[in-house]
Design a protein around this nucleic acid. Structure first.
Length: 935
RNA sequence: GGGCCUGUAGCUCAGCUGGUCAGAGCGCCACGCUUACACCGUGGAUGUCGGGGGUUCGAGUCCCUCCGGGCCCACCA
């Protein structure tokens, strides 16, 4: 990918931007809207394609990079893994982000909303291998114009032997080729969902810009002493044959057996001490040959006499010391442990602290070494080992256990046990511990303070955690637990082939050995480099691997080493400084809770080390999608219900509604029912809007002018409705400000249904203004029409972040000249409140209850709602009486009361406040149910 | 073993700093083709707010405890 695309605003986008400032109804000004193009029959079908195209054409979501940092709201969007497939969980969480983006945009902020694609890492590597039938071999040279042996080996894996080895650069090119296809599909889905992403702002985690950023960050870490290499025992995956970081660990149940094994203590030559068997218990008897000591707790009574002496191992007959160490737990196993190099991390601790020798027998492929080790000197021991050389740990265990049983050193039979073992999250064999040279970046996992700084890095990072606003707040605990529990620095090197290379070379000394201690570092201006093909400064290509020459670092970086830089990559760090200063530090990082320890934390580390700041102010954490049976929705199940299928079946607004109904940080059920409700809401918005805009239009053309003039709103009921709406605006805004989109939606939705069911029913007769012409309407009619238009204007804006397609459709019927609704201002309560003239919102509630009471009579009488009421006596609680009276004309119209409507104050205890606000129809005379006249 | 979240009508969930908080929608029942909407409308029924203690004049709402569900970390002898 080339340089960051610039977005010089076009004329069209310029106009749209201009409308982001508060104007019209939002500012309480008079707006004259021309209604055109309201369809006879509304539908949500096809809105996605129609408006996606329009938004793209008009650049509705294009980022205007003339804005300053204070005017920008920047989002560090999670780059989805393109080699996987999107599932409903993605739709869910990305919708949350989009709601925030749309809200902030309407608040007048210029939203920087990029999209990245994560094509780094093992899933892509495997997919490229199978798709093209190749594998990456970094030792090979780049081949210009390489064509893979096959294209489209989808689904079936190609045997390693049949894969054609290619250079890393060729492999990366194939990756980019393949993922660009995936990206098209992903983009199509996101567009259909209505994400207001600026599609000009996108990146791939393997593209040149990302590789440059990752290498630049690493080189700078190195220069500041934050990156270092060390030769040390570490967790190792034998399947993938790579080192694994703490963050990639997963503890899983793993079946094993306890073996009670005897070590032998010989009798003292002078006969003062008798021969003794010392029993240990182990689940890894195959490591017996790697034993370097037996270790018990210093206070353990049982072993006091053994400390400082030696014992001999069974079968191999190797002498090992018995030592004391507080990490030994007396109540575990036999209380005395066999320390091997290396069975687990405790062994590493003992080995390090007690300065034990290294006796490694497990190779990087998970098999035992092929040569019998020299520390086994006894003939019998060497003979036993010869039987297990080159075997897998599993086979070796069989041999050793059989041998122990035969020699009588196995006490009893192995006892089955269920233990926890560490696994690489993508692997299926327990991790081994092998010694290797690796690169690390400091992350507070080990004590470290920077030169000239007194604070410890871990403390600094914990402080950053307190500065970051987590939504919901309790997610911070996960960050703190993780940072507090780190037990080592961040292992960033991986012994894989596909990924961003560690940008280093090493000198080869005259004797042919590689001098890892003095890496050759590229200057930043030549990045990105691939050390396997590029040549360090001052050397020539033919010096590669030669004495006096150089070798390239073969390792690549952890995928998180790139992903931890997404704000820098998307923001154009060092590539586009002008952009970077307008968007960084970013405002928001949305992400899943499962990657707080990886993505979130590593991004904080990188930003802290490089800039001494947080990478963003807010972190919005979405929950999981659960199956109806309350289990986390599995990938397989999630793929059965494809996101695109969902959108096609229910409509994007509907699916968004379902997603937006779930709070941040809370798991949500996959609920088709919620989507149906969302669809209903979208359709209701279309229908109610069509109705609210229909009054006073020219009957012939269906067009006309609607005047949104607060001064026209003179009637109490209309003012009360707007007073209620003002409260809704205030509360919904407060909710969105605190990242509580669910609440904002709920508040708006509740009001909207009241607006439809009660207010619209109450005022429609008055709004029709029977007999009135367009130019000559009564004040009452004009008031209803203005109130309807103002309310609709506000409601559409409130709904726009959640239901972007239906609201845009309605907007297009009467406000198209103002551009997209998604670029107009978010409403403020003041405008509606001013129009309400201090009216009490309760008037609408009271009138609505009165209407409901009248409807109840008809419902109970099983007659149509059109049935006229000839006369009625209605008891109204004192608190509501004035309100009902103030809107009595509308109540009569809504209830089709043709005769007398007598309102009396309800007696104490008359009516139930929970039912129609306590309003009771005491007596009622129904007219002829005209609905019965069927053709 | 440590920690976080969660348990409210059949289902999905609201109930914010303790006092109309016992709610919404779906589903269910009955009715209704009303000049926006049958992809609809109107009305109705539904719960010892997981169990048990406690604080309080008063507790889904605070405290303790137990039980159930989900998740994170630690635990590899």
């Amino acid at each position: 990918m080339s340089d960051f695309p610039t977005n010089a605003p076009t004329g069209a986008t310029d106009d749209l931007h201009a409308t982001t400032t508060a104007t019209g109804t939002v500012a309480g000004e008079v707006v004259r809207a021309v209604v055109t193009g309201v369809p006879d029959r509304v539908s949500t079908d096809g809105l996605e394609a129609k408006y996606d195209a329009l938004w793209a054409e008009q650049g509705t979501y294009a980022f205007d990079r003339t804005r300053t940092r204070e005017q920008v709201f920047s989002i560090d969007t999670p780059p989805p893994t393109v080699s996987g497939s999107l599932h409903v969980g993605h739709v869910f969480s990305y919708t949350h982000t989009d709601v925030v983006a749309r809200y902030r945009r309407m608040r007048g902020l210029e939203v920087f909303y990029p999209m990245g694609w994560d094509d780094n890492g093992l899933p892509t590597e495997r997919r490229v291998q199978n798709y093209y039938g190749v594998r990456c071999d970094p030792t090979l040279a780049y081949v210009e114009g390489f064509e893979p042996p096959q294209v489209g080996g989808e689904g079936k894996s190609v045997k390693a032997a049949d894969q054609v080895p290619v250079s890393r650069r060729n492999f990366i090119e194939l990756c980019e080729r393949l993922t660009s296809e995936d990206e098209k599909q992903f983009e199509a889905l996101w567009r259909r969902l209505g994400l207001s992403v600026d599609w000009a702002q996108h990146y791939q985690t393997i593209d040149a810009r990302s590789r440059t950023a990752a290498q630049r960050a690493f080189v700078r870490n190195l220069a500041r002493g934050e990156a270092y290499q060390a030769e040390a025992p570490g967790l190792w995956d034998v399947t993938f044959q790579t080192a694994v970081a703490q963050a990639e660990l997963e503890a899983r149940d793993y079946p094993g057996h306890f073996h009670k094994v005897a070590f032998h203590r010989g009798a003292a030559g002078d006969g003062t001490v008798p021969a003794e068997k010392v029993f240990i218990e182990t689940t890894r008897p195959e490591l017996l040959a790697a034993c370097v000591a037996l270790i018990a707790h210093p206070d353990d009574e049982r072993y006091q006499h053994l400390f400082g002496t030696t014992v001999r191992s069974p079968l191999f007959d190797v002498e090992v010391p018995v030592l004391a160490h507080p990490a030994a737990e007396p109540d575990k196993g036999a209380g005395i442990a066999m320390c091997c190099t290396f069975g687990d991390l405790t062994d590493v601790q003992w080995w390090r602290e007690l300065q034990l020798p290294t006796r490694s027998i497990i190779q990087r492929d998970g098999r035992l070494v092929r040569e019998t080790p020299d520390w086994i000197t006894a003939e019998s021991g060497r003979a036993v080992f010869a039987e297990i050389t080159g075997k897998t740990t599993f086979s070796a265990r069989q041999v050793v256990v059989d041998g122990l049983r035969e020699s009588g050193d196995l006490d009893g039979e192995p006892v089955a046990t269920q233990r926890k073992a560490n696994f690489f999250e993508k692997g299926d064999k327990p991790l081994e511990i092998v010694t290797s040279r690796q690169w690390y970046v400091r992350n507070g996992g080990r004590d470290w303070t920077r030169p000239g700084v007194t604070s410890d890095l871990r403390t600094e990072l914990l402080t950053r955690g307190t500065e970051l606003e987590f939504h919901p707040d309790f997610m911070r605990v996960r960050y703190e637990n993780w940072v507090g529990g780190l037990n080592g620095d961040w292992l960033v090197s991986r012994q894989r082939f596909f990924g961003v290379a560690i940008p280093l070379w090493y000198p080869v000394l005259e004797d042919g050995t590689v001098d890892h201690g003095h890496p050759l570092v590229p200057s930043e201006d030549v990045l990105p480099v691939d050390p396997s093909s590029d040549v360090p400064a001052g050397y020539t290509a033919d010096q590669r691997g030669e004495p006096g020459g150089f070798v390239g670092e073969n390792d690549i970086m952890d995928t998180w080493a790139t992903s931890s830089l997404t704000p820098q990559i998307a923001g154009g760090w060092e590539v586009d400084p002008d952009l970077f200063e307008r968007v960084f530090p970013m405002d928001l990082r949305p992400q899943g809770q499962d990657i707080i320890r990886t993505w979130l934390f590593s991004t904080v580390v990188r930003s802290h080390l490089e800039f001494g700041t947080l990478p963003w102010k807010n972190a919005a954490i979405s929950g999981w999608i659960l199956d109806p049976d309350r289990k986390k929705m599995s990938k397989s199940k999630g793929n059965v219900v494809t996101p695109m299928g969902l959108l096609e079946e229910h409509g994007s607004d509907a699916v968004r509604y379902w997603a937006a109904s779930a709070r941040l940080g809370t798991d949500a059920a996959f609920e088709v029912g919620q989507m149906k409700i969302g669809r209903r809401l979208a359709i209701k918005i279309l229908n109610a809007s069509k109705f609210a805009l229909s009054f006073g239009l020219d009957a012939e053309s269906g067009t006309g002018e609607i005047v949104l003039d607060p001064a026209h709103v003179t009637q109490t009921l209309d003012r009360a409705m707007l007073a209620g709406l003002a409260d809704v605006v205030e509360r919904a805004t407060a909710a969105l400000e605190s990242y509580d989109h669910t609440r904002a939606l709920e508040i708006t939705e509740t009001f909207f249904w009241t607006f439809c069911d009660d207010y619209l029913e109450l005022v429609k007769d008055r709004a029709y203004g029977a007999g009135a012409t367009a130019s000559d309407v009564s004040d009452e009619t004009r008031s209803a029409r203005a109130a309807l238009a103002i309310a609709l204007d506000t409601l559409l804006r409130l709904f726009a972040p959640f239901v972007p397609f239906a609201t845009e459709e309605v907007w297009s019927w009467w406000r198209a000249s103002e551009g997209s609704i998604h670029r107009v201002a978010w409403p403020v309560p003041d405008a509606a409140r001013a129009a309400a003239q201090g009216a009490d919102p309760a008037v609408l509630a009271s009138a609505g209850h009165a209407l409901a009471a009248l409807r109840k009579v008809k419902s109970a009488a099983k007659v149509s709602m059109r049935t006229p009421i000839l006369a009625a006596n209605v008891a109204v609680p004192a608190v509501s009486l004035a309100g009902v009276q103030a809107a009595v004309v509308d109540v009569r119209n809504g209830g089709r009361v043709t005769g007398t409507l007598e309102l009396v104050e309800a007696a104490e205890g008359q009516g139930d406040a929970a039912v129609q606000g306590g309003i009771v129809v005491v007596a009622c005379e129904l007219g002829e149910p005209e609905a019965r006249r069927k053709a």
